[in-house]
Design a protein around this nucleic acid. Structure first.
Length: 163
DNA sequence: GTATTGATCTTCT
DNA sequence: GAAGATCAATACA
C-alpha cells in the first residue's frame, strides 16, 4: 500500500485450540475479525504501543489466523525508512510491530479484505524454502513448532533464528 | 556482546 | 488490577 511492500519471510500460526491464540476461549470483541471470513486482515494492539497484523485463514466462525512476523522490504524503502525513523533495511520490518509500522497498518485496517486495494497479495513463482521452529514472543504453548521462516533470510525478527 | 526494564493500552479477571 | 503474539533504550560484562 502506498507503494510499499515486500516479501513475507516469517509467519506464525494460531489455531482456535491454541492457548496462545486470541481466538482461544471463544469469540470476543477484540478478536471478532479472526472469526470472520478468510483473507481478511486482523489487527490488534500489542502492549499498548504496537500493532500486529494477522491474515485470517479459516472459514467464518473457526477463528484461525497467521501472524505476520517479518517482512523483507522490496518496495518503498524510502517511505518505510521515513516511517520507521531508521536506515537499516534489516530492521525495517523485522518483527510484528515493526512490520505494521513500516506498512502503515493500524487499527483502522482491522477487518479489511486483503484482496482489495490498497492491499495486494502476490504468490511467489518459486516456492521458498521455509523452516519450522518454535514460536517466539508468547508465554503459552511455545512448544508448538508453528513458526515458519524463510531459510537463510537476514530479515527475520530474531538475529539468529534456531531451527 | 547479553540482560533488564520502561513505555502504554486493550481485554479479561 | 494484571497480563500480553513488542520494541527500543539503558545497564552491565
Amino acid at each position: 500500500m502506498d507503494g510499499v511492500g515486500g516479501v513475507v519471510v516469517e509467519t506464525e500460526a494460531y489455531a482456535p485450540d491454541d492457548p496462545a491464540s486470541h481466538s482461544f476461549g471463544g469469540r470476543t470483541s477484540r478478536n471478532a475479525t479472526m472469526f470472520g471470513p478468510a483473507g481478511r486482515l486482523y489487527v490488534y494492539r500489542s502492549y499498548g504501543v504496537h500493532w500486529c497484523a494477522n491474515v485470517v485463514c479459516a472459514e467464518e466462525g473457526v477463528g484461525a489466523a497467521v501472524l505476520l512476523r517479518a517482512l523483507e522490504p522490496t518496495a518503498g524503502l524510502d517511505l518505510m525508512r521515513a516511517r520507521r525513523g531508521m536506515d537499516d533495511p534489516h530492521l525495517l520490518a523485522a518483527g510484528p510491530g515493526r512490520l505494521t509500522q513500516a506498512l502503515a497498518i493500524t487499527g483502522v485496517h482491522d477487518g479489511v479484505d486483503l484482496a482489495q486495494p490498497p492491499f495486494m497479495v502476490v504468490e511467489p513463482q518459486d516456492p521458498p524454502e521455509v523452516v519450522a521452529s518454535m514460536r517466539v514472543g508468547i508465554t503459552r504453548a511455545t512448544d508448538r513448532p508453528w513458526r515458519y521462516s524463510l531459510a537463510g533470510s537476514r530479515f527475520l525478527s530474531r538475529p539468529r533464528p534456531r531451527a
